[in-house]
Write a protein that binds this DNA or RNA. Structure first.
Lengths: 164, 164
DNA sequence: TATTGTTATACTCTATAACTATA
DNA sequence: TATAGTTATAGAGTATAACAATA
């Protein structure tokens, strides 16, 4: 259990992290340049578009961000920009229901083609169609495996200060 | 050129980004908890260990961080923590040569097993050995494709303000 | 003039803890 | 008591621009 990674595993890990880092950087730059959106903000809007119904903050937080206050902050920015609206839920008055506005949909529509272009060019420019299927299968399995495993279990220790 | 992504491409993209996001989050938490290191700081130290010689700031910046000032800041933190040393290069007096200290090596050794454990558990827990080879091959091709393509070319526009 | 690196500064993101309100 | 969400606050990361020194 304390043994290392095999050379092939090391190479794969480094290739994966570097490739994804480059991709994320390009994607973030595109979203910022063409829509003034951070990636998280885009995710929130995309999630609302995809859901085709208003979502609660808790539903939105699922998978998007790792703290409630972080989502509250981002939602505040998006609301100030007129891209979403928040109101108290009628079902459960503790809950906040978030809906995307017309302007929000316009913004997503404005940004999406460029976003897709970046992904297609950078990620899929080097892959054949069968490659895409294989990669999708592999990463779906990895993703499902991680989802089913509370991240904390691997790192149960207290948090330390940075680099000291 | 303005067409979208095929369903298989969409699924692959989402699986890839979510899986890597979960992995990165777990990795960052482990590095912070067990070594008080951010991922970038770990990368810098790992790069110095791997190089087996002092590196200039420019060499270090290559692939690690996206601005020189960002690296200067991180190097300052690592130097304050006693994990690296900086001095003026004798070859080119404009250059700064960065070397890892004994304490730096100790820190890497302290953190590495846990880091590897997280990667092995989360990333490779769902993959067979052949899978790892296939994934490594795919991502190496994607990475090389991105490296050879200046990221700016896909997003030539000016930067906008956030979400407004 | 171009390049290496630092500094000053500002902005964004994220997280923790305390708090309100409802279930 | 537990849950949904917000607020206040603080810390960390990153970037731009101006700058100094060297090539």
């Amino acid at each position: 259990m304390a043994r290392g990674l095999k050379p092939a595993q090391m190479r794969t890990y480094f290739a994966l992290t570097e490739a994804v880092s480059l991709l994320q950087h390009a994607v973030q730059e595109q979203l910022q340049a063409e829509g003034g959106l951070s990636y998280v903000q885009f995710e929130v809007l995309a999630k609302l578009v995809d859901a085709e119904r208003p979502l609660t903050m808790t539903e939105l937080a699922d998978g998007v961000v790792y703290s409630r206050s972080g989502l509250t902050h981002q939602a505040g920015l998006l609301e100030n920009a007129g891209l979403i609206v928040r109101k108290v839920s009628t079902d459960d008055k503790r809950a906040t229901v978030v809906d995307i506005t017309k302007a929000g949909r316009v913004r997503v529509a404005k940004v999406l083609p460029g976003h897709i272009a970046v992904v297609r060019t950078l990620l899929y420019g080097a892959l054949s169609e069968p490659d895409v299927l294989v990669l999708g299968d592999l990463m779906a399995r990895v993703r499902d495996h991680m989802r089913n495993r509370p991240p904390r279990s691997a790192t149960p220790r207290k948090r330390a200060r940075n680099a000291d």
